[in-house]
Design a binder for these strands. Structure first.
Lengths: 353, 353
DNA sequence: TATTTTTTGGCAATCGATTGCCAACTTAAA
DNA sequence: TTTAAGTTGGCAATCGATTGCCAAAAAATA
């Protein structure tokens, strides 16, 4: 034993964690019995069990999770990869998941991809490395392959995709019915008498944005309105980009009378700010609809019509999906896809009737 | 070997993870050399090392972190306990920490106490159980002891308290200078000509709220204004409670001409809403100052003066503190306290000059 | 009382990486 | 050529809980 350690042990109380061997030695029984008693096995006499439990408590025993993990090959951990932790939608998802996993004694390891594909790959690899029981992911906006997700499956780790998913990959999925929600939102605009409805699109390599566009198109068709290319703006998915796009739209000879910011409420906010600057009244001259129900949409003036995705309960759904369908089941069961219908929240920015 | 396992192995490719033993066997060398090569030890010949690395890559080797953890007694993990994950301030802290820990190959395990003391104790115990390298905590609002934090230290786990800290406990701390920031805010109000400034307080068992009150008082004293009991409202720390308190304040015979919502911007929002309802103009008749710089404060009308706590970079600071001061250092070094000075953001809700 | 069944509990291998110690080998110096 | 110093790499113990297998003991049955 190195000298410095000795000194340390003399200086401070040894404080070595008690192991099942310590308990076994003290009671003069085998460590295996202690282990069984602690895991409440029926193979140990109730009286002995009680004695062991009592002693363990007295000795302030705490299981060494690392040893248990190694032996069991599982660590009761779920890895989560999201674009950004500090974004209302995702932090609510995580909060919802934590609510469930906490009660099951599972841990959450959180990673953020920052919307970068390469970083997402790194995160996933790190989680594979950790032998997590399950990886829950919403993919980054940056274009990229999905070999890393295939790797997850190859390593026999359960995989749940949510929100932004890779369609081709057969995995469990928890998604929102973006198309239907968008269609409803646009239909609502039409019912309010808006005729020239512009669309702010997100990156079309993400399925969610394709679906929202599809919803927009189908609503127009359903109501017999023309689809006008000049009213659809690509890649307007930040507040700044949206503001820019809005400026262009509103300066057109024949400007739109409503804008559906399908990418996010931040985009909708950009729209509102530009409209206000330009002296265009909302909702009278311009209707605005956002997406996601960020808290601020309620307090802008006017308040912004948006779509609530039930993020917190979606997080719970994801966790429950794991525990109910995947935790113990065979790895090769048919993956389930759960679709949650978001809710249109009509606020002032679209009510002109 | 049980039969069903056999069947499984026949049905699916075995897919067993490659271990260092597999590599050793293939190259006809000892596992220890493989281990050393992989950890880039200088005790292995560069040529051999290269061969091992190449073979490892070919065999798709991935380290078994659980085994490594057990052996090393460390799992390169930091546990984080916060009242709520989905609260701008905390999710920013976590995002900031993740930014640093990601590059160091550390993992974050996230727990939320939901402001409940008992749940906080549970979370801390779970993290102790996990043998995390460090616990980072901001304590719950509910009153309770701090034996659980002492336990952390007793188990030789590093501990960093941030934001809401237990003062008596000698641990590393990363805090905001709440008193100074509050004092500045109130001084600003006074300079704007406000004379009767009310205070919305948070639970006084939390140090941060005591400090903010202290700052309020010291600013009043400094400027020779009287301290009026009737202008200080206890426990007004949600939007609803604040709205209620505001209503009472504004209905007084001699109402305040400014309200410092020291608890949060949500409280400030409650104030603003009530004022608007009552037809009281902000900032002319009533000045409002919040705390935390939630995103929405920028877009209310009028925008709300508030205090930015640099949450994201505070998260980085916390992580850096761990890596620079604690990761390898002796457990019994003098704990460091880092105080970050928040910044007053003057917006329209307090500018009447 | 003899035999079978059921309980109870110990032994030892296992999970996979790590590391102290020592041996073999290489290189350098005498 | 001999000795000393420095490299390289293998052996085996270790981390602590888990579990299949078997034996001893107890209980139930014949």
């Amino acid at each position: 034993m190195p000298k410095n350690i000795c000194i340390f042990e003399i200086m401070k109380t040894p404080q070595k964690r008690t192991t099942i061997y310590d308990i076994a030695k003290k009671l003069n029984i085998a460590a295996s019995s202690v282990s069984r008693a602690l895991s409440n096995s029926s193979k140990v006499n109730p009286a002995t069990k009680a004695l062991i439990l009592k002693t363990a408590a007295e000795m302030n025993y705490q299981q060494n999770v690392m040893a248990s993990n190694l032996r069991k090959g599982s660590n009761r951990t779920i890895g989560v990869v999201v674009p950004r932790i500090n974004q209302g939608y995702f932090s609510n998802i995580i909060a919802g998941m934590e609510d469930i996993t906490y009660n099951k004694g599972y841990n959450l390891i959180i990673c953020q991809s920052n919307e970068l594909h390469s970083r997402e790959v790194d995160c996933v690899n790190a989680l594979i490395n950790q032998h997590v029981n399950c990886i829950v992911i919403s993919i980054a906006a940056e274009q990229g392959g999905h070999e890393h997700l295939q790797q997850v499956l190859d390593h026999r780790i359960r995989l749940i995709q949510f929100d932004r998913v890779v369609d081709e990959l057969e995995t469990f999925k928890v998604i929102n019915d973006n198309e239907r929600a968008s269609s409803e939102a646009v239909s609502h605009l039409i019912q309010q008498g808006y005729q020239r409805i512009a669309l702010l699109e997100g990156p079309q390599n993400l399925d969610i944005f394709r679906q929202r566009k599809e919803g927009y198109l189908s609503a127009l068709r359903k109501h017999g309105l023309p689809v006008l290319e000049e009213l659809m703006c690509e890649n307007a998915w930040t507040k700044e980009l949206s503001a820019e796009a809005t400026r262009k739209l509103l300066e057109m000879k024949n400007p739109p009378d409503a804008i559906f910011a399908s990418t996010s409420d931040f985009s909708a906010l950009g729209v509102l700010e530009v409209a206000t600057q330009m002296g265009i009244s909302v909702p009278e001259q311009l209707g605005i609809c956002g997406y996601s129900n960020e808290p601020f949409t309620e307090i802008t003036s006017p308040s912004i019509t948006t779509i609530d995705q039930y993020s917190f309960s979606m997080g719970k759904t994801i966790a429950n999906l794991f525990f109910q369908e995947m935790e113990v089941a065979d790895l090769h069961i048919e993956p389930k896809i759960m679709s949650i219908k978001p809710k249109l929240l009509v606020r002032k920015s679209t009510q002109r009737l």
